[in-house]
Amino acid sequence: MQLVSMELVLAYFDPGSGSLVLQSLVGGTAGCMVFGKYLWAFVKERFRGRK
């Protein structure tokens, strides 16, 4: 999984990164899985970045 920059949300204001991510968690059980996957990808990316 790659966290490359890709402008997908075409908002005319800043929707807030954290606010977007949180929606997977408040979106029910399936959403929690998404949040878990997101966190895992996030940790891997950070880890890779520090090497």
Partner: peptide, 21 residues
């Protein structure tokens, strides 16, 4: 530093989760 939208798409985020929210 992270493109949250891209990460969510990759992780399988669906419109059902917006509806649930």
């Amino acid at each position: 530093d992270v493109d949250s939208t891209k990460a969510l798409v990759d992780a399988g985020f669906r419109k059902d989760q917006i509806r649930a929210n």
